[in-house]
């Protein structure tokens, strides 16, 4: 199953009865606060341009109210945009007629909701099969697939419980199982892990990463947790007040935060797990020294390997196993504890 990229092009959303009337003013610079004060409309999204990698995980981050849920709901058009395009496979989701949209939602997308949104009158199994039932998959087949995912999210034994008999974290995993059972190309996950305890959360991250290795779905994943974002995201976009402040790989964002907002965001991150050795290596001068480490190894893993081997220098190998640079344990540790990028000096002083 080949997944496709999702392209979002100059997407705007203004909440309110006459949103379309103010779009021109917003495009020419009316701010969210002004729009609300003057016209009582809420600017949900402004000028969003994101190209989400096919078969990869796109993480969307941002503070509460920054428009993450609004953005993800545009991808399956649970919210109508005020202007702009959402392209999947070259087709604008926002222009689909009702029938095409229904087919698109049935077969191409699955969604996990921030507030779970389970059907309270249905048991765990009955909730999990919902998507397949809507598609018209025979009951026996859908139940088999549902049970597989219920087991995978660790809810075996609760198949016949009702949502109100489960804890919040368990309900969230039902929502997750319901989406995964659908086996869709696009997986939309709105804070799908926020109600989970740390252990189960890491477990569910692993489930998603394993799934990605096999099936390469196009995942849109919303989270507040930067470590989670860095672990899962092939690409990260950070929103503020409905606009994209910065987008790029985790490393790019951690190393070169675009402004103070992002700097504040990435301050607490475990840099050793984000930065790769080639980012800090010195060009090779003379013969390769010490042990080899592969390009793409994160600093923490490299340091661990070097300490274990009792080496203080290592050389970096590229994809073709040619030595391309050299790192020392000192530089690795220095890079792990030194914030770089925007406002780095002030942080160091603090």
């Amino acid at each position: 199953m080949a997944s496709h990229a999702i392209e979002i092009k100059s997407l705007y959303k203004i909440f309110g009865p006459r949103g379309a009337d103010y779009i021109d003013q917003v495009k020419s610079g009316l701010s969210k606060t002004e729009l609300n004060a003057k016209y009582g409309h809420v600017l949900g999204l402004q000028d969003i341009n994101i190209s989400m990698p096919a078969g990869g995980v796109m993480v969307v981050m941002g503070l509460s109210g920054s428009g993450k849920s609004t953005l993800i709901r545009h991808i399956n058009r649970l919210i109508e945009p005020t202007s702009g395009e959402v392209l999947y496979d070259g087709v604008d989701v926002c222009r689909m007629n009702d029938r095409d949209l229904r087919e698109f939602r049935r077969h191409k997308t699955a969604m996990v909701f921030q507030k779970f949104a389970l059907l309270p009158h249905r048991t765990v199994v009955e909730n999990t099969v919902y998507g397949l039932e809507i598609q018209g998959v025979p009951a026996a087949e859908s139940e088999k697939r549902a049970r597989y995912w219920i087991e995978r999210v660790g809810l075996t034994g609760f198949e016949n419980h009702y949502p109100n008999q489960l804890s919040g974290g368990m309900q969230q995993r039902v929502g997750l199982a319901r989406a995964l059972t659908n086996d869709a190309e696009i997986l939309l996950m709105d804070e799908a892990y926020s109600a989970l305890d740390p252990l189960i959360r890491v477990d569910m991250q692993t489930v998603l990463l394993d799934l990605q290795k096999e099936l390469k779905k196009t995942v849109v994943f919303i989270t507040h947790d930067l470590d989670e974002a860095l672990r899962l995201g092939d690409k990260i976009a950070i929103l503020r007040d409905g606009g994209v402040v910065q987008q790029g790989t985790g490393q790019e964002i951690v190393l070169h935060p675009a402004d103070d907002y992002i700097t504040a965001f990435v301050k607490e991150v475990n840099r050793g797990r984000v930065i790769n050795v080639e980012t800090i290596m010195k060009p090779l001068a003379g013969n390769p020294e010490g042990m080899p480490v592969a390009k793409g190894t994160v600093l923490e893993a490299a340091a661990r390997a070097m300490t274990a081997a009792g080496q203080s220098t290592a050389h970096v190998l590229d994809e073709a196993s040619r030595p391309v640079g050299t790192v020392s344990l000192d530089t690795i540790i220095a890079a792990m504890v030194t914030p770089t990028g925007h406002g780095a000096e002030t942080q160091q002083a603090a």
Partner: peptide, 15 residues
């Protein structure tokens, strides 16, 4: 009926 639940039904393509 809870809007969120209806939204979920929509998201899975219910007619």
């Amino acid at each position: 009926v809870d809007k969120e639940v209806l939204e979920a039904a929509d998201a899975f393509g219910s007619s």
